[in-house]
């Protein structure tokens, strides 16, 4: 029941509560997304007579592309694990009381954060040796390992920033209160600051993972046999038929959407769960 009024103050409060961002509407979002991707594909996918229809061609290649996509996921998970481990240390280095540690950590973080992912990947790809020789043992450096290393560099820098940002985002009162209770710096950090930070760090960390997963396709530009490389090669093997591009790239978009969308929802759920109630 609504009643007529001109006074904003009299209006029901709920109007200002923004709708739950994803809430129940995910199926609508999914529908819109699917239409947006598949629509142009279908519109575009009209085969000239006498050839296999583009969708039939796509079905032929789908198993190979899926294999490639799984490889993307392996790269993303490894790079995330590796980057997070080093990045966390680097982040703590950034809030160190020792000026040298702080400054060098800051510099490393800034350097890798400011370099484009693609350029770092090129760097890792072309400048790391094919194998390294340590004490007569040859440690091989295959492509996929280089891709993981190349991608974990920016992840490391971003994690470092997330850690620093989270620590800095806590009110200084937390530090002061701990100090007044005679906690040491170490104790304050581990018992008071970091536990509160984890909640704040989780959503941006998940976002970073999403970004990383989507960045794995960059490995195609440097020749790792992941889904985009295979898509390009599949298209070339079909003789470069232009009407195939939309369905093929649409398919790749869809694969990533199906994987990343649930992660995004989970992140939002986490954000809500850990929301600091003011």
């Amino acid at each position: 029941m609504k009643y007529e009024t001109d006074l904003p103050v009299m209006l029901p409060l709920e109007r200002h509560q923004s709708e739950p961002f994803l809430g129940l509407k995910s199926k609508h979002i999914l529908t819109v997304a699917l239409i947006a991707i598949i629509g142009p594909c279908v519109a575009f996918a009209q085969a000239p007579s006498g050839q296999e229809s583009p969708l039939a061609v796509l079905v032929n290649w789908a198993p190979l592309l899926l294999k490639g996509f799984i490889f993307n996921l392996i790269i993303s998970i490894s790079a995330m694990a590796f980057g997070t481990a080093i990045g966390a240390i680097l982040g703590l280095g950034q809030i160190s009381l020792i000026a040298a540690t702080r400054h060098s950590s800051w510099f490393v973080t800034q350097f890798f954060r400011n370099a484009p992912w693609l350029v770092l990947l090129f760097f890792a790809m072309f400048l790391l040796p094919f194998e390294i020789n340590i004490l007569g043992f040859k440690i091989p450096f295959p492509d996929w390992l280089k891709a993981i290393l190349g991608l974990s560099l920016p992840v490391m820098a971003n994690v470092s920033e997330i850690v620093r940002g989270a620590v800095r985002s806590l009110p200084s009162g937390q530090w002061e209160a701990a100090e007044s209770l005679a906690y040491t710096r170490m104790q304050t950090l581990w018992l008071i600051i970091l536990p509160q930070c984890v909640k704040r760090m989780l959503p941006p960390w998940m976002n970073l993972y999403s970004i990383l997963t989507m960045a794995t396709v960059l490995a195609s530009i440097v020749g790792v046999s992941e889904v985009m490389t295979l898509t390009g090669q599949a298209l070339a093997s079909e003789g470069g038929r232009p009407e195939l591009l939309a369905p093929f790239y649409g398919f790749v978009l869809l694969l990533f959407f199906i994987y990343c969308y649930p992660i995004a929802r989970f992140t939002v759920w986490l954000e809500k769960k850990y929301a600091v109630i003011n």
Binding site: K67, A236, S237
Partner: peptide, 14 residues
């Protein structure tokens, strides 16, 4: 090459 028909390209099995 894997994208240079017919000198080097992929079949559907990869």
């Amino acid at each position: 090459k894997a994208d240079y028909k017919p000198y080097g390209f992929l079949d559907t099995s990869g």
